[in-house]
Amino acid sequence: MIEIKNLHVKIAETETKILNGLDLTVNAGEVAAIMGPNGSGKSTLSYVMAGKKDYEVTEGDILFNGESILEMKVDERAAAGLFLAFQYPVEIPGVPTMNFLKAAMNAQRKTRGDAEYTTPEFIKRVKEAAGNLGISMDMLKRSLNTGFSGGEKKRAEILQMSLLEPKFCVMDETDSGLDIDALKVVADGVNNLRSPDRGFLIITHYQRLLEHIVPDTVHVLYDGRIIQSGGKELALQLEEHGYADVIANAA
């Protein structure tokens, strides 16, 4: 579903290289986890996949269902079914969450050539999805993410994910800033979306999240490359011994 081939990325305005020949394949139905120490390039990978303009791909390619997405605009990638759950969801004062959700859902439907949702249809869907995540309708009347707690912001990301029904989800440190209860809610939200035709890339520092969202594969990112891949047991190994061994073995 996602094939990242020999990806080299630098920060657009400087010569700082972040990714140095990253290779990664994630199949439909697969939950892949990427772990790695600070500064290894985890967030950069998520932004590059989403199409943030601050980064420049100097070599390599990202294929989504066999087609390169590098020339696609940010919103085209989203409409094609790529979803990025942000590590730090952006606060946008003045845009009520409901209006935003409706704009996003209908924009994607329009791009795909589907009819826009009517207001009752839309509200029904939101109510159902919000209820599952313990999100009140009051919260959705507030400006997008504005004044939301860390847990509320992450739940709102999962809400968007479930409403937009993407094909592939990149989750950038979704566990950061969450207490254990919020973590469970978020993990349940993700687990409910797991399906044979949907892929996930879970970016995280810690094994903790992976106890709740059990991955099929685990990859270690270091210095802009995948230096080791394995099954879910690799995450436990990292938790126990830290990254030093893996890094030493790769060197």
Binding site: A50, G51, K52, K53, K73, V74, D75, A78, A79, L84, F86, P89, V90, I92, F100, A103, A104, A107, Q108, T111, Q160, L164
Partner: peptide, 11 residues
Amino acid sequence: HLFYMRARGIG
């Protein structure tokens, strides 16, 4: 702000 909204599919 713009990136966040576009990342949700809004042109």
